[in-house]
């Protein structure tokens, strides 16, 4: 009796889901992972909230401080889940010594990366819950006029984060210091992506950099639709900008992934196998 194979689309989907499942089995094996994700955002919120109080500001880009920060933290959790999930996928396989086995299989490398992304998103659900609780406790003022605009903005933010994850998954390996780079890019994104800092305080010459980051526009869309009662019209505009930037990042990411395997196979010295 020989082995039966799936058709190509089913194969792709099944390998994504199998990787997601494996990712979850893997992370749940560590105690630290169980506490880290719900606690992290709480500490982070408190730190920034106190910083803002110390700065003498009472609002940020028109929203209340708590509201502004909650949306920013929501975005940063998505970002982290993407960077440490899909972004770190290949690096993780290398660290665990399984990249050789993985690359021996015919599976689509993008499917594996996507599987990590999905798994990590699920793993981060407690963090999102923690943010929700914070919103409730701090009494952040929300003003939603167009619920669909919020949904759209959240989707754009997810896509933007995933795009970043894809882009970095290759870069992490090529730089050989994935962990460090993943940590290091966090602060520029908090600043340039307008996650924790109002875009209005940035000097003008930094704006083009901000605009090139897909997360920037998605966060603006989410803030305006949840905190300032923006309608569909302005949200669609920002979401569109975000999607354009995301598309560009995805392309860079796919090239990067291809490069990694190519370089590894040619040089044979990336310790990839």
């Amino acid at each position: 009796m020989s082995v039966a194979y799936r058709t190509e689309p089913v194969y792709l989907l099944a390998s994504i889901l199998a990787t997601t499942r494996r990712y979850l089995q893997d992370v749940s094996a560590y105690v630290i992972q169980l506490v880290r994700w719900p606690l992290g955002p709480l500490f982070m919120f408190a730190t920034w909230r106190i910083t803002y109080s110390a700065s003498g500001r009472t609002s940020a880009d028109g929203a209340t401080l708590s509201g502004f920060l909650l949306v920013g933290i929501f975005g940063s959790i998505l970002w982290s889940s993407s960077i440490w999930g899909s972004g770190y996928a290949i690096q993780n396989e290398r660290d665990d010594g399984t990249s050789g086995s993985l690359f021996l299989t015919p599976v689509s490398r993008a499917a594996v990366v996507a599987g990590y992304g999905l798994g990590s998103f699920i793993w981060f659900l407690p963090s999102f819950a923690a943010v929700g609780v914070l919103g409730w406790i701090t009494g952040a003022h929300f003003a939603v006029h167009a619920p669909w605009a919020v949904v759209l903005a959240v989707l754009a933010l997810c896509i933007a984060s995933l795009a970043a994850g894809f882009t970095f998954s290759g870069i992490f390996i090529l730089t050989r210091r994935g962990n460090l780079v993943a940590n290091v890019i966090q602060s520029p994104i908090y600043l340039l992506g307008g996650l924790m800092v109002p875009l209005s305080v940035l000097p003008g010459w930094l704006r083009p950099f901000s605009d090139a980051i897909p997360v920037t526009h998605a966060v603006v869309a989410l803030r305006e639709s949840t905190l300032l009662g923006a309608g569909m019209g302005s949200t669609v505009h920002d979401v569109a900008l975000s999607l354009i930037a995301s598309a560009a990042w995805f392309v860079i990411g796919l090239i990067g992934l291809w490069r990694v395997e190519d370089v590894a196979k040619r040089v044979g010295q990336l310790d990839l196998y």
Partner: peptide, 24 residues
């Protein structure tokens, strides 16, 4: 010593690789 998913059981390893090879 390397090349297998250490935190997974023997069975889970085989199942995962089966998926990676596109088996039903």
């Amino acid at each position: 010593d390397r090349g297998l998913y250490a935190k997974l059981s023997a069975r889970a390893n085989l199942v995962y690789f089966g998926n990676l090879y596109g088996m039903t």
